[in-house]
Design a binder for these strands. Structure first.
Lengths: 331, 331
DNA sequence: TTGTAAGCGTTATCAC
DNA sequence: GTGATAACGCTTACAA
């Protein structure tokens, strides 16, 4: 392994000079700079990341907690987060998040990362506290349910957004609207449940506990819940359903198809994220378009600023409603 | 930040003793061990990863190159890789792979990782060479097209597997079978194209360049290619298609649905991976079941052994054919 | 069984 | 402008 010492020797300068050049410090003569650059090239020298980290306490690594990578929505955000982070010289690693293994994760992270991205999870206060004390910013894409002291978050205004969905549904004649929710306490989907309740209220529509189905955030579970709903003869109770995630919307659609329930004629279905697949189903699914690229880019910006010690503020984005076949009669 | 020195002071022992305890070295008295453990707990001490890496040259980090995270197949493998790697104390980071940015990636990795996982990509010889010289094992999940000197790979026997698919198709009366391929030079999907050609030959079925459609590995592109195929009136040429990836199979199915082509009656379609979604389409899609968990676990094992310097050998797994509605007449 | 001390490859503070 | 040199926190001979 080539070290800075060898480079210095080869260039006929001191190790300090090499450092200056490498870190773009001012006050280095052009001649020296050239010699150093030349030596670096010839020796194919790469600075030691570990040594640098030991000295500077900066790891240039970011970690993101993922709930379930099989979800195209999360995968998409992870993707954007990675690409944007790399622009700033950060490596991104990820860890599947299990609430019950938080302690273990905390241990795992110690001294290895400069920042944590959350995908809406609510970390435990002790964990947040540990990270805070270690000076590690926590930026959440999607507002955590427990507000807790995350450094900042980016999200859309769920109440306003879901109100758009509800208004559209109303305009199509739907007054009994149900929600396929994910009731997990620590998952960002819960925010959507809360927002949906408010939005229904704002729109003057009735909404209670019996209007909520539990789909666990996954396709399979939502499908099972819907199949059950149909089986026990509840189908007449609602004329439309909003699913808190696209995967759940697809699950509901699958359940309807297998049961011979026409969508949107007998039941309208809308999703919340706009993953690619919602455009590939029959019927195509009406969804809110979560601005993933923008939100991810913003999250990385916030992260970089927070790491620099600059003050950061959470951001809320707009979300459009994309009306497609699953909610549009005669569409 | 608590250091080993503080722990030593608190426990009333030397810094070396703390190290011995931490690294489970023999030759430490129980009394000392207890005192150290106690001090560590009280101080909530965590060893510095950077310092340890600087000294040992082990980073305990693995990286995986991802082609496209929106693909449930890759996401699934990434998932398994992460979970299994963590069992062995490794952190997993990932990088979206772009052939043209390989140089940049190489730079990015220097001194930061102990091993590289490939998802079937063919790395350039120089890159492989660099990694080899740095003592970094390269384990590929799915055999790279260019055999190159990767340390080892895990995969299924594609020719034998695709032969199962073809035999099944033959038994359903299909003799003109096409392939929806991904022709990218560096992508593992290419292996499947090669294998398919061999399998067709082995089954005594005609297969030439005109029997190949190019779907770029993605749903959208495969759908477009299929739509095109239908539009220009080629539909009668084949009675069945095998897609080199499930995403492409779904894209073809979508194209057929939008064009009013009945599957499997007018065209049978089969996939290659068994991602969850193939069970949720109508019709459900016949697929080969790629043993993702087993392959991922095996890949991590190989990685750990290779890092330890043990000799490793590539492994081939069996793959089952899951016959579903998309290829089964009257199913 | 325990302690001392020499690095590991950087960065950064001083002198020169 | 440039060059010594002291940390950074850890591992590991080697000494005691």
């Amino acid at each position: 392994m080539t070290t800075r010492e060898e480079v210095a020797r080869k260039a006929g300068v001191s190790v300090a000079a090499v450092s200056y050049v490498l870190n773009n410090k001012p006050g280095v003569s052009d001649a020296t700079r050239q010699k150093v650059l030349e030596a670096i090239r010839e020796l194919d020298y790469k600075p030691s990341h570990a040594a640098r980290t030991l000295k500077t306490k900066k790891t240039n690594q970011l970690t993101v907690f993922v709930n379930y990578l099989g979800d195209a929505f999360e995968a998409g955000i992870l993707n954007h987060l990675e690409m944007e982070s790399r622009m700033f010289g950060y490596f991104v690693n990820f860890q599947t998040y299990h609430p019950e293994r938080e302690e273990e994760l905390r241990h795992f992270m110690a001294g290895r990362i400069d920042g944590v991205f959350l995908l809406g999870q609510s970390l435990r206060p002790e964990t947040l506290e540990t990270l805070h004390k270690a000076g590690i910013p926590v930026i959440s894409v999607m507002k955590p349910v427990e507000p807790g002291p995350v450094t900042a978050f980016v999200d859309i205004d769920w109440t306003a957004s879901l109100q758009k969905t509800i208004r559209h549904l109303k305009s199509e004649g739907h007054l009994r609207i149900g929600l396929m929710a994910n009731l997990s306490e620590t998952h960002a989907h819960r925010t959507r449940t809360l927002a949906f309740r408010q939005a229904m209220k704002a729109e003057g529509l009735p909404f209670g506990e019996t209007d909520i189905l539990s789909g666990g955030g996954r396709l399979e579970a939502a499908k099972a819940a819907m199949l059950d709903y149909i089986r026990i003869g509840r189908l007449g109770e609602h004329t439309a359903f909003v699913a808190a995630s696209d995967l759940m919307a697809i699950g509901m659609l699958t359940a309807c198809r297998e049961s011979g329930i026409a969508v949107p004629d007998r039941l309208a279905i809308a999703g919340c994220e706009n993953v690619l697949m919602t455009l590939q189903t029959t019927p195509t699914i009406t969804v809110l378009d979560y601005p993933r690229p923008e939100a991810s880019v913003a999250a990385v910006r916030l992260m970089v600023e927070a790491i620099r010690g600059e003050p950061v503020a959470s951001r809320l984005f707009d979300s459009r409603l994309l009306v497609r076949q699953s909610t549009h009669m005669g569409g």
